[in-house]
């Protein structure tokens, strides 16, 4: 249990990050760096996605290589209604929750019958099926994607067309997600998920049908990521099957590992550093992915437990 509570140093760092995110729009407008507001909006959206994936990988030991499918499903739940001039954000959100939930239930029910590398392959296969389904949907742009002409409408009091409002809505959803996951992993359900990662056989002999718990966890994770997808669609205003390709799923895994698997806050750090590095390095050189890869290897090798590991290591001998 201790592993999931931030020790002091990391606790301070994480509180700092939250405060920084809370005041970011003020900072960027003061510095006239509106561009960075966009960057941080994207970081927060992908943080939500990475948090949901961490529920599977970090807490549950279920390594899914198809998680970006949920991002895509969520985004298309904005794109397709908007294409038909349905702008109501609650409809978008509701659709995304139902669609990603059903997709998670069906694919999870099948994938979770397998273990290890087979699970990785089968989640990848399902995600690729969704990818190619959207590629083949000519009506919605196929390969070329779909422009979202107007963002989701949540009533007059909340205008997502404003970058700052959108930023704070995403920030709010991120906080909710963080709060929810924190509750979840400390409650009985979360303990069963973590226990099953460590010793599934023993958990079964204690009376837990681990498959069912994992399936529910998979559905929760899928829905959270679908919600992130709704905001990704709104944020980019342009969606295409590319956003659910397997390399996108791989990036989400990067973020989780980068931040520290199975830690509450790690994925947010991972997403932040991933996107900032991508931004800065790609400005310096076209070979940025080479440097990026080297940094990832270093963090995994020496950080042992990602950023969270680095922040807590000095305390742990």
């Amino acid at each position: 249990m201790k592993d999931y509570l931030p020790s002091t140093l990391s606790g301070i760092a994480y509180t700092g990050v939250i405060i920084l995110l809370a005041v970011m729009p003020v900072i960027t407008s003061a510095l006239g760096q509106g561009f960075y507001l966009d960057i941080f909006s994207r970081i927060m959206i992908l943080s939500i996605a990475a948090l949901s994936l961490n529920l599977l990988i970090g807490y549950g030991g279920m390594i899914s290589l198809g998680h970006a499918a949920f991002l895509g499903i969520g985004a298309y739940c904005v794109g397709i209604p908007v294409y038909y001039e349905i702008y109501n954000g609650w409809i978008h959100l509701g659709l995304a929750i139902v669609a990603s939930g059903i997709f998670a239930l069906v694919t999870g029910a099948i994938s979770l019958r397998t273990k290890g590398v087979y699970f990785i392959m089968i989640t990848l296969a399902f995600a690729q099926m969704v990818y190619f389904t959207f590629v083949s949907l000519e009506e919605y742009g196929g390969d070329d994607g779909l422009v979202i002409v107007l963002r989701s409408e949540f009533g007059n009091w909340l205008d997502l067309e404003s970058a700052v409002v959108l930023y704070y809505v995403i920030f709010f959803v991120l906080l909710l997600t963080l709060f929810f996951i924190n509750k979840l992993v400390k409650a009985r359900f979360g303990r069963v998920i973590v226990g099953s990662k460590y010793n599934e056989r023993r958990m079964q002999s204690l009376g837990f049908d681990t498959y069912r718990y994992r399936l529910v966890c998979y559905v929760i994770s899928g829905i959270l990521c679908g919600i992130a997808g709704v905001f990704l669609g709104n944020f980019t205003s342009f969606i295409s099957p590319e956003m659910m390709g397997w390399t996108r799923s791989g990036e989400l895994i990067f973020m989780v590992v980068f931040g520290g698997t199975g830690t509450l806050f790690g994925p947010i750090m991972g997403a932040g550093i991933f996107i900032l590095l991508e931004e800065w390095l790609s400005a310096i050189t076209i070979y940025w992915q080479l440097i990026f890869g080297a940094i990832l290897i270093a963090v995994v090798l020496f950080g042992r437990g990602g950023i969270h590991g680095l922040l807590t290591r000095s305390k742990r001998r």
């Binding site: 509750k183 409650a187 009985r188 303990r191 069963v192 718990y213 529910v216």
Partner: peptide, 8 residues
Amino acid sequence: SFRFWQPT
């Protein structure tokens, strides 16, 4: 153990 809220 489908209890999602109370910390154990």
